[in-house]
Structure formats: C-alpha cells, structure tokens
C-alpha cells in the first residue's frame, strides 16, 4: 500500500511540471500587451519601458518561464500587475473560501450520491427507484447558476431562512460556516451527487449479477452484509472515478457560484484578473487550482488501491 502511495506521489512530480509549462503558455496567450495594461492607456513610452524592464517582459519566453518557475518553487508568486499586492497573500486570504466551498460540495456530493445510489441499487426497477431516477435526471440537467439563483431568491430573499452574500470562516463558527455554505455548495454538488448516485446504482445492479454475490448468498450471509460488504466495495469503484473527474468541474463551477453568492474566493480573483489582463495572477491561480485537481486524483488513485487489491498488489 505504501509502495503504491509513494509511486503515485512520485508520478505527480512530472505532471505538475507539465502543468507549469501549460499555465505559463496559457498566460502568454491572454496577455496582449501587459505593460500597456499595467501602466495604463496614457502611459508614455518611458513608463512602458520601465514596466517592461521591471517585469523582464522583453526577455524571451523560456527565460521568463525558468525565472517564474524558480520564483514559484521559492514560494514567491510575484505581485499582481493590477493591484500591486502580493499574489501569495491574496491567495492565502481567498483560498480558505474556495477550499470551504470545494470541501462542502464534496461532502454534499457524498451525502446525496451514496444513499440514493444504494437505495436505488438494492431494488432496481422498484417504484422508489423510478422516482429517484427522475430526481437524478433533474439533478444532472439543472444548471448550477439557475439553482443558485432560485435558492437565493426562495430561501434568502423571500423567506430569510438562510444567509447569503457573505462568508464566515469555519474556525470562527462552524454552524454559521455551514449555514453560509449550504446553498452555494448544494448548487455545485447536485450534479456530481446525481452522477454519483447513477454510477453507484449501475455499479450495484451490475455487481448483483456477479457470481460472488450468489456465492455469498449460498454461504448463508445476511443480505445487508452482502450489500454493504460484498457489493458496495466493488460497486464503489466507478463511482469513485466520478469524484476525480468532478473536482475539476467543481472548481470551474465555483467561479460562477462565487459571483452569485458574492464569495471572495479564488474564482472571483481569477475572473477579475482575466478582465485586468493580470497574467501573473491568472497563471498562479490556475496553477493552484490545477494542483488541487492533481491532488484529488492522487487521493482517488490511493482510494482505488484501497478498494481493489489488484491495483494494490500490482
């Protein structure tokens, strides 16, 4: 098991390296003339030259890449070209918000997906299963911004049941944190949860046909034990893959959701940066978000190894 973890960890190093190249290249394509953007439209040629020199913008791209990479490796993400504030401190301030949203969404995804999937998968074709299938289809189809808007209108504006438009840190008050998080997180989590329910249902229905389930039944094991122990572990594998894929969507979704709920997270930050042609912020935030996706995939891989001895012992 440890061998698998170490192996997977080592494999992320070249991947992260490739991602830095990707984000750097991406930032190059959006920048237009950054010096002009920074110095303002009325800047003189002298001012532009000064900005160019400060940011080494006239160096060839590979040179700038290597410099940036070395800065990043030293924990120096540079300064925003628009606000002149250190990117690292801005990220430190905003990261908890986005992380909160991501974690709350993931938890809700499990809370929605696992029970629904099990209930459906245990009795496929039943009335309850059909009803839930309808709900799952709705969840898959509903756009998150629409859900979010409806939630805000119904629950906050009309009925004042839940707060919106603010963020309370988890360490300050876990209850308030949860109250503030539930609407945005649910808006994001519904699609993933629905997809997870569907995968889990399909997985359980498939596993129920397996010889080893019949064999377990033939040994007189209790049906609940057969489902929870023998079926679920095997049926969970495809559902688990969903998580890895979903985290990317989740972060993308948070860009919109943060706007709707006025949460000052990374999504909002990157959106502003794009509008300001603030390439340093864009490449740094994209790098951080990509890092989160890679780490999630890593966790999923390790969980996979835990579930599947063929992977673990390979």
């Amino acid at each position: 098991m440890i061998r698998v973890i170490v192996k997977r960890l080592l494999a992320t190093i070249p991947l992260m390296f490739l991602i830095t190249i990707g984000t750097f290249a991406l930032a190059q394509t959006i920048q237009g003339n950054p010096a002009q953007a920074i110095a303002g439209d009325s800047a003189t040629a002298e001012q532009l030259a000064k900005v160019n020199k400060e940011l080494h913008l006239s160096d060839p791209a590979p040179v700038r890449y290597v410099r940036w990479l070395s800065d990043v490796l030293h924990g120096n993400f540079g300064k925003s070209v628009a606000t002149h504030r250190a990117v690292s401190s801005e990220i430190a301030r905003r990261f908890p918000v986005t992380l909160s949203l991501a974690i709350a969404s993931l938890i809700l995804m499990f809370v929605i997906g696992i029970p629904l999937g099990i209930i459906q998968g245990m009795r496929p074709g039943s009335k309850l299963d059909k009803l839930l299938l309808g709900g799952v289809s709705f969840g898959l189809a509903a756009p998150n911004f629409l859900l979010a808007t409806v939630f805000v209108y119904v629950l906050s504006v009309r009925n004042h049941l839940l707060p919106s438009m603010t963020y309370v840190g988890f360490t300050k008050s876990p209850l308030e944190w949860a109250k503030h998080m539930i609407m945005p997180a649910f808006s994001i989590a519904l699609v993933g949860g629905a997809e997870m329910a569907r995968q889990l249902r399909t997985g359980l229905v498939g596993v129920a046909q397996e010889d080893y389930i019949r064999a377990a039944k033939a040994r007189g094991l209790h049906p609940a034990r057969i489902t929870i122990k023998h079926a679920l572990k095997n049926a969970a594998m495809p559902a688990l893959t969903i998580i890895g894929v979903r985290v990317g969507y989740l972060l993308a979704g948070s860009v919109i959701i943060e706007q709707i709920f006025q949460l000052h997270g990374l999504g909002e930050y990157v959106l502003q940066a794009i509008q300001n042609k603030d390439f340093i912020v864009v490449q740094t935030v994209v790098l951080v978000l990509a890092g989160i996706v890679v780490m999630t995939s890593l966790v999923v891989d390790i969980a996979y190894a835990f579930l599947n001895p063929k992977v673990r012992l390979a």
């Binding site: 064999a215 039944k217 094991l221 122990k229 001895p309």
Partner: peptide, 30 residues
C-alpha cells in the same frame, strides 16, 4: 441452511470469490 447444512461449489471459481477481499477474510466471515 445455506452454508451450514448445504454447501455449494460453482462453475467459475475465480468469479465466485469476491475479488475485493482476501480468501481468509471470506472464509472467516463464513
């Protein structure tokens, strides 16, 4: 009765054992 009074051996032995658990786990469980 199942397992206790009547045991069953199936056609496809490799698929009749749960791939996610060791054979000891499945024997002890039974």
């Amino acid at each position: 009765v199942r397992g206790n009074d009547i045991g069953v051996v199936f056609q496809d032995p490799q698929n009749s054992l749960n791939p996610a658990y060791s054979i000891g786990n499945q024997m002890v469980e039974t």
